[in-house]
Each structure stands twice: as structure tokens, then as C-alpha cells.
Write a protein that binds this DNA or RNA. Structure first.
Lengths: 357, 357
DNA sequence: CGCTGGCACTCGTCTTAGTGGAGTGCTAAT
DNA sequence: ATTAGCACTCCACTAAGACGAGTGCCAGCG
């Protein structure tokens, strides 16, 4: 049932030890109490006496997979223990059908709520009873549909652009000269005719190139338009961001009942950049990725785990979503939640049937 | 120094009792411990023995202004006690100059960060070390500057409209027939020419009126435009909302260290509607308003106080801002913070110099 | 050699009892 | 009206003891 697995230590764990580690982790995840040899003896179907189990536990402890809070307590999995568990021992439970339908109806492609990201985040937190997080799609991979300029006053121009299906972004730029509404309209028309349908990243690059190379063969109007486009799509136009929901769910967990910890965690949430960096790392790999406790490298997350998955639109990874909860979480249920949500969100964002502008 | 004040009770408190209540509240706010007769005797400059003070305290307790946690503890102000204190006894401290400059530079009118609301909220939480909240300006009092329609697919039309200086709103509507981009452009032009510069509320009313009365004398194009406008400005277009920052500051206070309470509070924050309703009540009155503890009527805020002030643009109240913290807060400092911030925010939002579109 | 029962030991948790201090209410005296 | 004095209450803290859970180790058994 459980294959043998080599660990960093030269020693090889046999199937029985792994089996025991597995039931230990499962049991600990269930009731949060350190689990003793007697309980383990009953829970596992190995028919071993508590004494034997104690010997095995001593080995596991030597390997750093479990840990005893104090002399006369049972064992608790360490981070390495959890890691081994999720990597090799975990038996993922399929999603319950009611949860699956819940996800489907929430992220139905027909919906044009304009806030699919928010919906996905709420679904994650609702289903898992922990915190759900979804990054906004990467703008490099987002395609421009329409751009518009509005004069505010003097040289202040409001740029509005629509991406993908229905996302609207806006930014104020300062132009070098004063434009009439008609000129702005013309510039927008020009840019729309050329760049509509291209990714923002591509547009940015093209704009830079044009300004370097083709200045002489462009009309003044075209030149103005391109210059404004450059201002509009300037680097950190819209900083990476994410939607986090269900933070309050985290306040129920005993491992986060320490106010200091909780405060640090919530501060990390509102400062965002740490979380963003963490999530960015998950963009690289496909499929479900997990950070357990201190693995994340951020002190605020020391007692939390993060289960993430990248989501893709037309086979291109555009963002990450995931669930944040205490290290002691039901990974076997959370993983499929995250996995399926990522896939459905990708599908919902797909520019599919709708005809281009 | 302290005037006599009638209370709901027929009995009238003399100056001495009030003086004592005042120092009691001040002292309690300072160190959070129930204050005893001996301490009060030393703190007040009345030169009374502890025994006398005890008699006064018994009176105050009968009036429900103070309360004893248990037999041998000092007294703690009740909600009524706090109320009397802030209404009649409080000596407001002027703002420290460094805080004043901080506010001025943060809300300097020249800034066009586009996020003055967020800045105001952050300033409030930063200066008070509690949570800052600022409602978005009321849309009824916000004036339309420009409207634009973009066809998404079939009958789905994206409406974008700009209000005041630089705020951009968007919404997707479903039209009854399919429009060409040119038709949409025409409709937008028509609406802009008529309604630009009017408040959203006025536009909504005018639209309804036109549809009822003047249908026959309008062209088909005008009719379509007005119908779309109606969809766009339909009632709860953009629900009232607010920006809340510094929630984590609240996690340090001992009166909110109970996880259950804290969770309720944070859930109220994320559900928003309760807070919105509370803040709406503050729109009516001008100047600083205070809700102490259970006065708010929301259980989640039972142990919190809310110090608010409406902010106005050109003498018209458009929103509310405030500070949320534990009931035991330094009102004499918080009040001026809120007061000044409201005034500066109003000034920063003023359409002043910028010429209309 | 692996497994098991037994036993002494450790340690956290809970209860109980005891002590000290802070602060009150009441009463009698000024 | 104010005050000093006194008995009383109640919380907070500490110490001690009982209990229970679980361990480590050892000796015996297949």
C-alpha cells in the first residue's frame, strides 16, 4: 500500500514506518492532539503493540519526522513529516459532488459578474473554511481590447482601457502638450486599430520599438498617440495584486490563537508584497504546490500552510490561487479544492465564444 | 471649571461629582485598571479623603455612570459614564504640530493620486494607531463628467463613466437589441452633451422622467441612449463602500483579545453592510459624532467606540470618515484627528481650480 | 532478531488550600 | 458634610498534591 521512500538521511524507512507516520499525521490532523503509541496501535491495521510502535516512533523522531512536545506527550508531525506525508503518503479524496456543483455554478462561464476573481476567492474560503487567495491575472498575458482617452484639465489625461472580457483599468497621465477632445479621440482610434487584441506586454514593446525606429514615417498624430500609449502602459501601471477573502476563518484555529502571531499574519496580508512574492514562486510550476510552515521563509507564515495552483488561460499561466490555513489542515481535501478551482477559473477567463470587439 | 449637568435621572450632579467622574475616566483611559478611591483622592486636586470619594462613587454607581467589576475592585466608567464624559467633561487637546503637518502633506490638494480616500484612511489609522475608515463619496452628490459605451458581445455593453475629477466606474448592462459601435458612440455623445456636469442622482431622475413623458418627441437614437442610461444608472449601481485600514492595530488591545469578539468584529468589517449603515447615520449630523460601545446597536461593536465626522465638498456632505477603536480610547486626542482629517479631505476633494471637461 | 508486557519515570493539567493586597461599605466621631 | 477606622469581600498568586497520559527501557518470549 505504501511504497518505500528514501529520505535525505541515508537510512531507508520501511513501509511499516511510513504507514505509521501516515496514520499519525492523519490522526493528528483530525483532532489536533499529540498522538500516543496506544492510539496509533489501535488506529493502524498493523496489529502491533504500543511498545513496538514506540520503537518506531523513536526512529521517526531521530529522522526528524515527528516531535514530542514534552516527555509524556504523544508525537506530532514536524514540517519534514508533513512534507513527506503530502509528497508520498497522501491519498487525495475526490471532491464531493455538492462542492463540485457549487464550484461549477459559481464559476459558470456564462456569468459576467465582472468579478470572477473575487468569486473564486470567496468559493475557496467558503468551501475550505480557511482563507482563499487569488492573484489578478498577470497583465503581460492579458490582452488589450479597447483604449480611450479623456481630457481632465490642461495636460492631465485620463486613460481608460479594457482588457480581456470586462476588466476596466484606468490611469492618469500627464502629457507634454494640451490635446483637444477630437485629437484624443483620433489617437485612441489609431491605437485601437493597431493594438486591439494584442497583449499589454506586446503593446508596450511595440510602442518602444516604434518610438526608436519609425519616427520619421509617422504623422504627428500617430506620434502623439504612441507617446501617450507609452505613458499609459509604463511599467508598474497596475501593481500585482490579489483578492484575499475569509481571513476571519483563520481566527478560529487554535494554532493561530496567539495574538502576536495572528497580528503578524494579518499585517503580512495587508502589506501584500510578501504574499505576492510567495505566490509568484508558484507561477513557475504547474499543478498544485504546497508550502508548509516555515518552508515559505516568511516568519508570519511559520504556522500556516499555503496550498496553491497556477491557473491558465489558453495554456498560458496567468495567475495563482490558493488557500491559506494552519499547518494542520486536511490536505487531502484542500488539494482537490484548489486544483479544481484553478481549472474552472482558467476556463471562466477563457476568451472562448464571445466575439472580439 | 466643570459646569453642573442634568442627567436623565431627576437628580442633579454637582460639580464635584463631575470633576471626580472626569478624573476617573481620564485615569481609566490611561492605564486600563479599575480606579479606586485612594488613587482618585490623590489624582484629583479636591483634597478629599478616600472615604468621601467612596460616598461619591456610590452615588455615581447608583446613577449608572460607573461600575465595579467586583466587590474589591475600583470603579470603571459605564457607557453612560463615557457618554457624559465626552459630551460635557472632555477637554479636547489641540493637534500636535507634527501630526498636523503630516495630515497636510498627505492630503495636499495638489496631489492627484486618485486615491485620496485611501490616503485619508491610512493617515487616520497611522496617527491614531487604531482602525481608520472612510466612506467613498456619495454617488448622489457626485457629478457625471463623461460616459462611454463599449460593445462586448451581442447585447452585452460595457458602460464606463467618469465622475468628479478622476473616478472611473464601470458596469455591464444587457441591452434589448444589438448596437453597432457607431450607434453606441452616438448615444454616448448625446448623453454627454445633455447630462455632463449633473449629479448622478439628477441624471437618474431626468432619465426616468424623459421616458415617461417625452417619448414621442425623441428620435429612436435618443430613445436608445436614454434607455441605456437608465440601465447604467439603475439604483444600486455602485453599492456604497468604504476603505478600512489598520484593522490589525485593533489586535493589540486587551479589550479585544477575546478571539470570539475579535472574529465577530472582523467579520462585520468584511460584510460591510453593518458598518455602512452605522456610518450612514453619521452623515446626517455635521461635526464629530461618537458611538460608544453598545450605543451602535451592533453586537460586534459592543466593546468598540466609533469616532466619526462627515466630510463635505462645497458645503454639501458627501461622505463620512472615522476611527474605530476600543471603548477605552483617548477621545480628547482622537476627536481632533478625525475633525481635522474630515476638513482636509473635503478640501482635497474640492473641484477647485481644475477646469471642467 | 523482532515483538511484547511490565515498570519506573516524567511531565502537563487540574484541584485544593492558603496568603496578601487592594478596595469597598459601614459606622461612629469630628 | 467629612473623615478615620474597621471588618469584610474578592481577586491574583503560589504551593502542594493527585491524576492520567505517555514515554523509555529492559527483560522475556516466539
Amino acid at each position: 500500500m505504501v511504497a518505500e521512500v528514501g529520505v535525505s538521511n541515508t537510512q531507508v524507512l520501511n513501509g511499516r514506518s511510513l504507514q505509521l507516520l501516515k496514520t499519525l499525521v492523519e490522526r493528528y490532523i483530525n483532532d489536533g492532539q499529540p498522538v500516543g503509541s496506544r492510539a496509533l496501535s489501535k488506529d493502524s491495521d498493523l496489529n502491533l503493540s504500543p511498545a513496538t510502535i514506540r520503537n518506531v516512533m523513536a526512529d521517526l523522531e531521530d529522522l526528524g519526522l515527528v516531535h514530542s512536545p514534552h516527555t509524556s506527550a504523544g508525537r506530532v508531525p514536524t514540517v519534514s513529516g508533513y512534507r513527506l506525508f503530502v509528497d508520498s503518503l497522501l491519498t487525495v479524496k475526490p471532491l464531493e459532488s455538492k462542492d463540485l456543483t457549487r464550484l461549477h455554478q459559481g464559476l459558470a462561464v456564462s456569468e459576467d459578474t465582472g468579478d470572477v476573481i473575487g468569486v473564486a476567492s470567496r468559493l475557496l474560503s467558503e468551501l475550505t473554511q480557511m482563507a482563499g487567495v487569488v492573484t489578478l491575472p498577470k497583465r503581460e498575458l492579458v490582452c488589450l481590447r479597447h483604449i480611450e482617452f479623456l481630457s481632465l484639465s490642461h495636460t492631465r489625461v485620463l486613460v481608460i482601457f479594457v482588457t480581456n472580457e470586462q476588466e476596466v483599468h484606468n490611469k492618469i497621465i500627464h502629457t507634454s502638450k494640451v490635446f483637444s477632445p477630437a485629437e484624443l479621440q483620433q489617437a485612441a482610434n489609431y491605437l485601437n486599430s493597431i493594438y486591439s487584441g494584442h497583449s499589454l506586454d506586446a503593446v508596450r514593446k511595440a510602442v518602444v520599438k516604434e518610438l526608436q525606429e519609425d519616427q520619421e514615417r509617422m504623422s504627428q498624430g500617430m506620434l502623439d498617440a504612441v507617446k501617450m500609449a507609452q505613458l499609459a502602459f509604463d511599467q508598474d501601471n497596475k501593481k500585482d495584486d490579489y483578492v484575499l477573502t475569509g481571513e476571519t476563518n483563520l481566527m478560529g484555529f487554535s494554532e493561530l490563537s496567539d495574538m502576536e502571531r495572528l497580528k503578524n499574519l494579518f499585517e503580512a496580508f495587508s502589506q501584500k508584497q510578501g504574499v505576492i512574492h510567495l505566490l509568484d514562486q508558484c507561477m513557475k510550476a504547474d499543478g498544485v504546490q504546497i508550502f508548509i510552515g516555515e518552508e515559505s521563509g516568511y516568519r508570519a507564515f511559520d504556522h500556516c500552510s499555503l496550498v496553491t495552483s497556477a491557473y491558465s488561460v489558453s495554456d498560458e499561466v496567468v495567475g495563482v490561487l490558493g488557500v491559506i490555513g494552519p499547518t494542520r489542515m486536511a490536505y487531502e481535501k484542500i488539494i482537490p479544492y484548489v486544483d479544481v478551482t484553478a481549472k474552472l477559473l482558467g476556463a471562466a477567463l477563457n476568451p472562448k465564444s464571445t466575439t472580439p470587439l
